[in-house]
Design a protein around this nucleic acid. Sequence first.
DNA 1: AAAATTATTTTCGTTTTGGAAAATTCGCCA
DNA 2: TGGCGAATTTTCCAAAACGAAAATAATTTT
Lengths: 208, 208
Amino acid sequence: MSRNPQSPSPAGQVLTRLRAENGWTLVEVASKTGVSVSTLSKIENGQTSPSYAVMTRLATGLGVDFVHLIGGNASQMPHGVRSITRAGEGMSFQTEMGAYRALASDLVGKVFEPMLIDIPVRKTFAERSYSAHRGEEFVFVVSGPVEFLMEPYAPIALETGDSIYFDGSCKHGFRSLAKGPAQILSVCLGSRSDHAEQAETTGETDEG
Amino acid sequence: MSRNPQSPSPAGQVLTRLRAENGWTLVEVASKTGVSVSTLSKIENGQTSPSYAVMTRLATGLGVDFVHLIGGNASQMPHGVRSITRAGEGMSFQTEMGAYRALASDLVGKVFEPMLIDIPVRKTFAERSYSAHRGEEFVFVVSGPVEFLMEPYAPIALETGDSIYFDGSCKHGFRSLAKGPAQILSVCLGSRSDHAEQAETTGETDEG
DNA sequence: AAAATTATTTTCGTTTTGGAAAATTCGCCA
DNA sequence: TGGCGAATTTTCCAAAACGAAAATAATTTT
């Protein structure tokens, strides 16, 4: 009896499209990835549910992100969407860190989470003045100078126009070094992922 | 002979952590996901390379993003890393779009790709003056005004301090409306994933 | 402590996957 | 049209994953 013809997994669909776009044959893909021609064929036709090991080889061999292969999440925003936030607008809220303005807050499911933050002048750093979260963070100093604190580094001053890219999981905080509040633009990862905790694994490719 | 003890796949590591954080037992996870207890154990211990079918059931059953399960965009940066780019610095290059300055260019494998772009004054929009790429893009106008063009919208003027979040796959471009060049800060997805064509990478947890 | 309870790992038979090679289908050209 | 080379699908078997239940290990109770 022949195999039952399921609908192709996302990996199969991606593989099919990639081959079409690049004009690759199954044999070529096989040599690139180390996955046999027959397996590739079955994957494209939905006759098999590829293992993690195989998907890994596909991803690295074809030079695409693993996420692509599982159809994982293409942007959840509809095509052509855009959201403009005028200066001074944005959904604002206050924390110990400062006065936040969330930009493009009408768009849900964003990949980026851009915020404008007014950083107050402060003498001491209360514990609550620090932030730490998963993922990376990018900060551009719109109006400085500010002092940036991040464990395990010494404080460092950032002037207007300076930027910093750092591991957001380390405790970090800002304070204005100007007469009044300073302003920074912060970009973190969007909070599309459900729960609060989890995330961050050491990228591991296993397989034997 | 007992199974050979490989290192756990990312899925295994995530599963282990999720269970620890939520206090779930293997039996509970099994009932949530429909994956047998024995398989779960083997996945956590790296004794098996889970199939796509199983990973799917894990993701939906646990209500986590598939990307988490495969270590999708866990940060590839070592713990505690940071990179400061002073105003006026950054790896610069020129395109039809304008003069680019890539920020934190010494960090590879970034999730974000921040750029400062000097936008020239121009009368006409040559085809090469447009950009289109996978994924979302966030732009903050550092020094305006600029005109933003994006299909299928009419041109719109953005002032200093305005920002826009949009679907980068639509043709888009800028031109300065000031006397001289304007400047924008652009954040796209890191180039960890964008080889050929196709979809983009996705979100993650965190918060600001 | 021992027993009882609960959680995890291992065993082992069944099902599915992965791959080499055969069979088939699909161009292409004389 | 018939034949030929290339690409894809199918066959078939070894290897691996999956799951039920047994065997351990870890906790709690008495």
